[in-house]
Amino acid sequence: MAQEKSKPKNGVTAKDVKKIAKLSRLHVEADRLEPIAEDLNGILGWIEQLAEVDVEGVEPMTSAVDMAAPLRADNVSDGGKRDDVLKNAPKSDDGFFVVPRSVE
């Protein structure tokens, strides 16, 4: 059966796009919200086809390799590179990063 370009069940709206953009600190022009929502819904609909696969009894896979995280011993082996750390900062002073005021 030919699938038409499906709309996902809980598709995103222009309002959702606005919110996600804000949370991600991305500027999106008002007239772009609707087209982006449409694009995203297209992607979501395509991804949703995965739901057709029967995964009964299959454990969710969270990484591509089946192994546990390697652990390291609790030793101080890094740090002490303040100048490197601050090198790319637009502004620093007295060893601190300096940014626009974050509270009123």
Partner: peptide, 18 residues
């Protein structure tokens, strides 16, 4: 990361690139 956790060190001296 392997940076130290001590309290009261000079700013950004216990910071790795991680």
């Amino acid at each position: 990361s392997g940076s130290a956790t001590g309290y009261g060190s000079a700013p950004n001296t216990q910071v790795s690139l991680v």
